[in-house]
Design a protein around this nucleic acid. Sequence first.
DNA 1: CCTACCGATCGGTAGG
DNA 2: CCTACCGATCGGTAGG
Lengths: 195, 195
Amino acid sequence: MLVSQKISTRRNQIMAVSLQMMRKLGYQGTSMREIASALNIEAASLYNHISNKEEILKVTCFGMGNQLLLGMNEVNDIYFNAVEKIKMLVKNHIRVLTTDLNAGWVFIHEWRNLSETSRLDFIALRDRYENGIIEILQQGENEGVFNEVNNKFAALTLLSSLNWIVEWYKPGGNMSPDEVAEKLTDFILSGLKKD
Amino acid sequence: MLVSQKISTRRNQIMAVSLQMMRKLGYQGTSMREIASALNIEAASLYNHISNKEEILKVTCFGMGNQLLLGMNEVNDIYFNAVEKIKMLVKNHIRVLTTDLNAGWVFIHEWRNLSETSRLDFIALRDRYENGIIEILQQGENEGVFNEVNNKFAALTLLSSLNWIVEWYKPGGNMSPDEVAEKLTDFILSGLKKD
DNA sequence: CCTACCGATCGGTAGG
DNA sequence: CCTACCGATCGGTAGG
């Protein structure tokens, strides 16, 4: 029991260090030797805790993706009208991305480096999320509260502003994740123009 | 004259092939040998036309960046009110990114791989563009046509939807760059909600 | 967790 | 534009 806890802790350290380096240097720009060196061990020792470099990426991308999908399911189960759903979805999305910004950044940028089969799985997962957003927008149209727009286009634009947050969000800054979510929702719902 | 034209053409071929591969595999994932192989020459021969791998990235990132800044200067010279400025800026931004989507993609994603000094220059250039947008938003506020918002935040959100286009735009699809720009402007100005 | 090592590949240069 | 090559580095394994 103690042993497996130790291993698990080491694994967590490896994950944390890897994601930090990958955010700075990219997946391909981060070597196993550098990860090991940051932990004061040899590269070969990493393989006692993870099976290979790609596992780091796979666990991160699918972990984040599943968190987003879980949030979406929850939103659809609990909230009734489209505006409420969008608000909750945005809040969850920002929370998931900012809870571990290194993981969020890698999730957004580095999934392309997944091997062929994993990449296809990831794209399928992402498409499910995207389609869920399209459905909410459609619901809003049906309710008569959203403008009639190209929902696919609107969903992509919405997602772009949600995902871009990993580029500029500073955890120690003057906006909490929920405040960001609130401002973003206002922007998405009302736009720049004064009524 | 003929010789220099030949060289220049070869250089353009190298640029085009490189950007296509880098869009698919990333800057670090694209090797000089693979670029050469796609042109049926040896890797060493590339160095008669470009000085090194980074030059491809540098020319692309600063070329695109300068195009965006030029467009912004033009907009500020010609258009008077903020709504008109935003419309024109968005149109120019989308045009620049979609004219060569490979270059657009590399510009948006791969500038991080620039060497230290170039990267700092690039960030400075990007900040100038960002500040230009903030100024237009401020002008719109002063004119009383835009909501009072955090302009920095609004500028980043605006930029996110402009830049995300390199992720999903399909040149052969059913929207021209100018149509995308128009829809995007509507979205940014008016948001999702029905008035 | 380490030593020792593998085959492969990298960006780039010398010299023609 | 090529041949021949450089030193460096990569992800990963064998065996302890």
